[in-house]
């Protein structure tokens, strides 16, 4: 965590041309600032039609039930942390994104798309807390997810998120780790762990086991100690377990979900599912 926080501590202020209340520090992100230059009104409208064009029960119920009471605001940590700034309230986020799009029927310019992308990608964690506080139980995060999908179709996504998605497309894990690197790491951790626990084993692709453990890709890459810790716990408890190395589908994180790239998302889930089914596992333990 040697990230220099001062980098982004910029004094410049970004003011939305649509919502005078929406004032934020300026943060440069090529994924947002550069991609909006490519947008045309036709593209935006097409993406809008693809996501919001068809009337569905969930969108209809949410939009027609919300009575703008603002009770969800107290649930959002962004709102509470920023001195109750009205623009951070969940309902305000929905107002500035989905309602604005629906009100204008998708006929908006790139400036609004920037605001929208900034709100849905960097100011909402999809934590579902607001839904527990809404008197109507509206699934606010569902709307945020739809808007994320809209932004993804336009390619207006924070650079790192988009980059990770492409990593997933190419390698099915988030850190560009090849199969051989992965197997190598497992052997190395096995060897290291043996000094602390006798005969430590990290089984690979063992069939008919009790537990299949899928790590997060960052574990073999940046936090390899997790692997031998897990191995030690399982060994001491006498669990019959295995890790998967075949077919590349071993990373249990699913970053494409965050930008609603359904295709890659499905590929990953399906890959993990098939791997586990092939090994006839009873339990699937995903990483912490």
């Amino acid at each position: 965590m040697a990230i220099k926080l001062e980098i982004s501590e910029e004094k410049e202020v970004y003011r939305s041309s649509y919502f005078p209340e929406y004032v934020r520090p300026k943060i440069y992100d090529p994924g947002l600032d550069e991609t909006i230059k490519r947008l045309t009104p036709e593209k935006i409208e097409k993406a809008y039609q693809a996501v919001f064009g068809k009337e569905t029960a969930r969108i209809k119920a949410i939009v027609e039930t919300c009575i703008h009471c603002g009770l969800c605001a107290e649930a959002c940590q962004w709102y509470l942390s920023n001195d109750r700034d009205p623009t951070y309230a969940p309902v305000a986020k929905v107002k500035m994104t989905a309602w604005e799009l629906m009100k204008r029927k998708g006929k908006v310019d790139a400036g609004l798309v920037y605001d929208i992308a900034r709100i849905v990608f960097t100011e909402c964690n999809i934590c579902h807390r607001c839904s527990l506080y809404c008197p109507f139980g509206l699934d606010i995060t569902f709307i945020i997810g739809l808007v994320r999908r809209f932004c993804f179709l336009l390619g207006v996504v924070p650079q790192r998120m988009f980059d990770q998605n492409q990593t997933f497309m190419a390698t099915a894990n988030q850190v560009w780790m090849s199969q051989s690197d992965y197997i190598d790491t497992l052997f190395w951790r096995e060897e290291e762990g043996m000094y602390e626990l006798k005969n430590l084993r990290i089984p690979m692709d063992k069939e008919g086991v009790e537990v299949v453990w899928f790590p997060l890709a960052a574990e073999p890459k940046t936090g390899p100690y997790h692997i031998d810790r897990i191995a030690k716990i399982f060994q001491v408890a006498g669990v019959d377990w295995t890790m998967v190395t075949m077919n590349d589908y071993w990373d249990s994180s699913n970053m494409p979900m965050f930008i609603r790239d359904f295709f890659t998302m499905q590929r990953i889930v399906k890959g993990l599912y098939e791997n586990a089914a092939r090994l006839r596992a009873k339990k699937l333990v995903l990483t912490e």
Binding site: I3, L5, I7, S8, E9, R24, P25, I27, Y28, D29, Q77, W78, L80, S81, N82, Y88, F121, T122, E123, C124, N125, I126, C127, P158, Q159, R160, M161, Q164, M255, F258, I259
Partner: peptide, 20 residues
């Protein structure tokens, strides 16, 4: 959550947003 963990450019924004 929601993919913010990977956004290095936005770390201080993210931390400011979670004073609670």
């Amino acid at each position: 959550g929601g993919g913010l963990s990977s956004l290095v450019q936005w770390y201080s924004h993210e931390a400011r947003g979670n004073r609670v």
